[in-house]
């Protein structure tokens, strides 16, 4: 029954670092996304986790073609959309929409809520003015905003309400896939739960698929079907959610899970004794380490890790990139 909605094959996005005034020379490449292969099934939520600078947001934006991929392939409904010119790609854009992290920055402060939510409809020439207004009313109602506020401006809303506006805008074109880039991390704790619940309800209602990009593992555990863990532009582990949290295979995943504090003083005491605290910092993606990119911080590192880059291999339901297996 599982049907693949979107697939990336060996997707890469390098940002050239340039020098020079007129004739710029590329002196290095920042490998933000470095050979990512994954797929999203219809109706599932794929959690994409990792620390800052691991390339998770860049991956989302590359799939959206906000950044042109350096190489690799993106398949949507089995059609190659990697190199479609913008005017043909436009019709695919309807199917993939995005929710952004900062609800203060993602809404144009000079536009009314109505023009913000109706902008995708207008851009894709859906309906006339009255039909669009009706659709805006409907969308606002669905995301839990009072439709009588359509003439208001973003600054008149709170953070959580703004994020609802962003969600309404993403839903306007009835997309099949929504890429949510840290949609709750700038919201207050009591508001986060509201937005998570809303996203889950909408998923059931519209049969949506999500790519849920976040650094918060506890949220991923709650919302996703499968989880991909990224480190320095690569996937180090990809597994069904309950398996990943029950038995993480990659040492990085293990450290990541153990580092999260749990809101329970007793259990936190136990966890603290077993906590794996990684040495050092995340290396710069401009100069990633040789071999396995995690070896500089890995507690289980051995000789081979410094020389040979591990490849993603299947172990049971899990894919992991580590020489231990």
């Amino acid at each position: 029954m599982s049907e693949i909605l979107l697939q990336t094959i060996n997707l890469k996005k390098y940002f050239p670092v340039k020098r020079g005034v007129f004739f710029q020379k590329t002196i290095a490449n920042l490998k933000a996304v470095d050979g990512i292969s994954l797929d999203i099934q219809r109706g599932e939520t794929l959690g994409l986790v990792g620390e800052s600078g691991c390339g998770k947001s860049t991956l989302g934006r590359t799939i959206m073609r906000l950044y042109e991929p350096t190489s690799g392939t993106i398949l949507f409904d089995n059609k190659d959309i990697t190199t479609l010119p913008e005017h043909t790609f436009r019709s695919y854009r309807k199917n993939i929409q995005m929710i952004f992290q900062d609800p203060y920055a993602s809404l144009n402060p000079r536009m009314t809520v109505e023009s913000i939510i109706a902008e995708p409809l207008k851009t894709h020439r859906v309906g006339d003015h009255t039909e669009r207004r009706k659709k805006v009313f409907e969308l606002m109602d669905i995301v839990g905003l009072n439709p009588s506020y359509i003439r208001r401006y973003p600054h008149e809303f709170s953070g959580g309400q703004r994020q609802r506006i962003g969600i309404a805008r993403a839903l306007a074109l009835n997309p099949k896939l929504i890429i949510a880039d840290e949609p709750i991390s700038s919201l207050d704790v009591s508001i986060q739960a509201q937005i998570i619940n809303l996203l889950i309800e909408l998923q059931i209602y519209y049969d949506l698929s999500y790519i849920f990009i976040t650094h918060a593992l506890s949220v991923v555990q709650h919302i996703s079907t499968r989880v991909a863990v990224m480190y320095l532009g690569k996937i180090v582990e990809l597994a069904p959610t309950h398996e990943l949290f029950k038995q993480p295979l990659h040492p990085y995943t293990e450290a990541l899970i153990s580092a999260i504090p749990v809101p329970d003083p007793q259990r936190e005491k136990e966890r603290k004794t077993k906590r794996i605290i990684l040495k050092g910092d995340i290396p710069s993606p401009l100069h990633p380490p040789q071999g396995c990119s995690f070896h500089t911080r890995c507690p289980k590192k051995f000789d081979r890790c410094e020389v040979e880059e591990p490849r993603l291999q299947q172990i049971g339901n899990t894919k992991v990139a580590c020489h231990l297996y």
Binding site: R61, M64, L66, E86, F89, R90, R93, Q97, M98, F100, Q101, D102, A105, S106, L107, N108, P109, R110, M111, E119, P120, T123, H124, G166, R169, L173
Partner: peptide
């Protein structure tokens, strides 16, 4: 800014982005 990215992700044309999103905010 994310609202310009959002417009791009919807497929809003370059001219529209300049006229509707950039210039009003540089007012």
């Amino acid at each position: 800014k994310e609202f310009v990215l959002a417009a791009k992700s919807m497929g809003v044309s370059k001219g529209s982005i300049i006229l509707r999103h950039l210039i009003p905010n540089a007012m």
